[in-house]
C-alpha cells in the first residue's frame, strides 16, 4: 500500500508539470480558436464598413441603376424590391409559422406532431437554392414568367419552419397552470390559447419573427430564378423584381469598379438592416428572448 502511494507520488510529481503545461497549452488553443472566429467576424464587418460606407449617399439610396459607363446611380429599386418581397413573404409566412407552432405546442403529442416537427426541421435545412428550384417549378413555370410573387413565396417557405419551431419552444415555456386557470374560468381553449398563451409570449414570438425576417432579407439563392432581377423600378408583383442581395451579387461579380463599389455600398445597407433587426430584438424584448436562447 505504501509502495503504491509512493509510486503515485513519484509519477504525480514527474508528470504533473507536463499535465499542467498541456492544460495551459490547450486552453491557449481554445482561446485562439475563439479569437480566430471573432477576428473573422470583425474582418467581414470591418471591410463592409470601410469599403461600403463611403459610397452610401442620398443618390445611392434614392436613384435607380445607371447603365455601365455612366457614373452615379443607386439601388433604390433593389431596396424597394427587397422590402416588398419580404413583406409579401411575411404575410404568408408569419401566420403560417405561428399557427404551426401553436399546433405543435398546444396539441403536439403523438406521431403526427412528431412528423410535423421533423418536417419543419427538415424544411429548415433544405438548401435555399433548392427552395428556389421548387418555387420555379411550382409557380414560375405555370405562370410563364419570373415574378416578385414567386420570390416572395420562396422567402415565405424559408420563414415558416424557423418561426414555427421558435413559436413552439416559446409557448412550451408558458406554465401549464396559466392554461388551467383560464380553462377553469370557463374560457374556451381556443381563446385561452390566443388570449393567454400567445399574448404571454408575444415578445419572444416577435423576436423569432424579426430574426426570420432578417434571415430572408439576406437570401439570394432562392431569388435568382424566381424574382430574377430588374433594372427598373417595378411595383407589380407579377413582374420580375430587383432585390438587394441579388443586386449585390450581380454587381460583385461584374468586371466594373463602379459596380463593385456599389456592391459594397449595398452590402453595407444590407448588413446594417440585418444587424439592426438582430440586435434590436435582442435588446428590445430581452427577458423572454434571452431566457430561451441560453
Amino acid at each position: 500500500m505504501s509502495s503504491l502511494r509512493g509510486q503515485i507520488r513519484d509519477f504525480t510529481h514527474l508528470r504533473y508539470k507536463r499535465r499542467k503545461l498541456l492544460s495551459l497549452f490547450i486552453s491557449f488553443l481554445l482561446s485562439l480558436s475563439a479569437l480566430a472566429a471573432a477576428s473573422c467576424l470583425i474582418s467581414v464587418f470591418g471591410y463592409v464598413i470601410w469599403k461600403g460606407l463611403p459610397h452610401v449617399n442620398l443618390d445611392f439610396l434614392l436613384s435607380l441603376p445607371k447603365p455601365v459607363g455612366e457614373t452615379g446611380g443607386g439601388m433604390f429599386n433593389a431596396f424597394l424590391g427587397t422590402l416588398l418581397m419580404v413583406f409579401l413573404g411575411s404575410v404568408v409566412g408569419i401566420p403560417w409559422g405561428i399557427l404551426t407552432g401553436v399546433y405543435l405546442s398546444e396539441y403536439g403529442r403523438g406521431k403526427f406532431a412528431f412528423l410535423v416537427r421533423f418536417s419543419a426541421d427538415m424544411l429548415a435545412s433544405v438548401p435555399s437554392i433548392v427552395v428556389g428550384l421548387f418555387i420555379y417549378v411550382l409557380i414560375v413555370k405555370p405562370m410563364r414568367g419570373f415574378s416578385a410573387l414567386a420570390g416572395a413565396a420562396s422567402l415565405a417557405l424559408i420563414m415558416i419552419p424557423i418561426i414555427a419551431r421558435n413559436t413552439e419552444e416559446l409557448l412550451k415555456l408558458v406554465p401549464n397552470h396559466l392554461r388551467e386557470a383560464g380553462l377553469a374560468l370557463g374560457i374556451p381553449r381556443w381563446k385561452v390559447i390566443l388570449r393567454i398563451v400567445l399574448r404571454g409570449s408575444l415578445g419572444g414570438i416577435t423576436t423569432g419573427v424579426m430574426l426570420a425576417i432578417a434571415r430572408v432579407a439576406g437570401e439570394t439563392a432562392p431569388l435568382l430564378f424566381t424574382a430574377l432581377n430588374n433594372r427598373f423600378l417595378n411595383l407589380n408583383p407579377t413582374q420580375p423584381m430587383a432585390s438587394l442581395p441579388v443586386q449585390i451579387y450581380t454587381y460583385a461579380i461584374a468586371p466594373f469598379d463602379e459596380w463593385n463599389q456599389q456592391a459594397w455600398a449595398g452590402a453595407f445597407v444590407l448588413v446594417i438592416f440585418v444587424f439592426v433587426l438582430n440586435l434590436g430584438t435582442r435588446w428590445l424584448v430581452k427577458p423572454t428572448a434571452l431566457g430561451t436562447r441560453d
Binding site: 503504491l4 509510486q7 503515485i8 509519477f11 504525480t12 514527474l14 508528470r15 499535465r19
Partner: peptide, 16 residues
Amino acid sequence: GLKLAGIRRKSVLKEV
C-alpha cells in the same frame, strides 16, 4: 484518477 496521474501499467491498475 490513477490514469490521470500517469500510471498506465496494467498490472498496477488491476491490483488497485
